[in-house]
């Protein structure tokens, strides 16, 4: 029974990683850059939701919506101001800029919300959990909501990229920016849209994360951000199903490592798995081999 519970908790934690990993992987697929500020967008989302609920006394739903709105705008603004001017710069410059944006967001949060940890009230506070097998298996409401949210997001995103005009444009841009442009697709607005979607999802991830682990600090986003990045690489960066698989796998491994091996070593084990996978399959689990033209 414990095994089952750990598995469910692992999937739930992994769902959060998966939602964050989507942002990394989509942005990488389109803009070919690693947006290391993505983890901090999660933190901003959580703070916005926290403020709406605790200070303005609005319902959690309003908090989530507002957080998504703010993060979506934030994502677009970051891309416009920090990354767009570097579109043709070497990738190292963009990478360092992304780290800079990450520090900027953390310190801005430190100025606004101070360093003391806030206690985040779960958005599903008071909702009943699920009790199965005559009380032997208790699953909390936030665990269930997280897994469901992940499923909904995955379905919506798959439909979006597979069926809609904008989604197809996105895939076209990720495959060949130049050719897409010559077919009349506006690459800049496609990249903006990608950042908007990724950041909106980051807000949801932030709210879910802080509902499960209720301590909110300016650095709350960095570790989950790095784990989610790991998940994206594990699944094959650039691949949406890869982010899903990588995220859930990582969550399950982390929880199992904590439960059966060592709490302190769990992160080390997670990253060790990444190293092993990359040694065996450098493109990640679902990543496609890229044939460089000679």
């Amino acid at each position: 029974m414990n095994l089952l519970l750990n598995l469910i908790n692992g999937i739930s934690l992994g769902s959060i990683y998966a939602i964050i990993a989507l942002g990394y992987t989509m942005v990488y697929g389109i803009a070919k850059m690693l947006n290391f500020a993505h983890g901090d967008v999660i933190m901003v989302g959580a703070y916005i939701c926290f403020c709406t609920v605790s200070y303005l006394s609005l319902p959690p739903a309003a908090g989530i919506l507002l957080a998504m709105l703010v993060c979506t705008v934030l994502g677009i603004v970051i891309e416009r101001l920090a990354y767009k001017p570097l579109r043709s710069a070497p990738s190292l410059a963009v990478l360092i800029t992304a780290i800079g944006v990450s520090y900027f967001l953390q310190n801005a949060a430190l100025l606004i919300w101070k360093s003391d940890p806030k206690v985040f009230t779960s958005v599903v506070d008071g909702w009943p959990g699920l009790t199965l097998f005559g009380g032997q298996l208790r699953i909390s409401a936030v665990t269930i909501v997280t897994i469901l949210a992940n499923i909904v997001i995955m379905i919506a995103l798959t439909l979006f990229t597979g069926k809609t005009k904008m989604g197809k444009a996105m895939r076209a841009v990720s495959e060949d920016k130049g050719a897409a442009q010559l077919m009349g697709i506006n690459v800049n607005s496609t990249i903006s849209l990608t950042f908007a979607i990724g950041s909106g999802l980051a807000a949801i991830a932030g709210v879910l994360l802080c509902s499960a682990y209720p301590t909110l600090m300016p650095t709350t986003g960095s570790m989950p951000g790095i784990k989610a990045f790991t998940a994206a690489v594990l699944g094959g960066i650039g691949s949406i199903p890869g982010a899903m698989l990588g995220g859930i796998l990582l969550g399950v491994i982390e929880i199992f490592a904590k439960a059966y091996i060592s709490t302190q070593l769990s992160d080390a084990i997670v990253f060790a798995v990444l190293i092993v996978v990359l040694l065996i399959k450098p493109t990640g689990l679902l990543g496609k081999k890229i044939n460089e033209k000679v």
């Binding site: 005009k165 197809k168 444009a169 895939r171 076209a172 495959e175 060949d176 130049g178 050719a179 897409a180 077919m183 009349g184 697709i185 496609k288 033209k293």
Partner: peptide, 21 residues
Amino acid sequence: FQNIRLFSNLTVEDNVKIGLH
């Protein structure tokens, strides 16, 4: 293009639809 630059992961129809975008 001289060296074909289709969106090779998209279906034939979707490639045309990108043109119709």
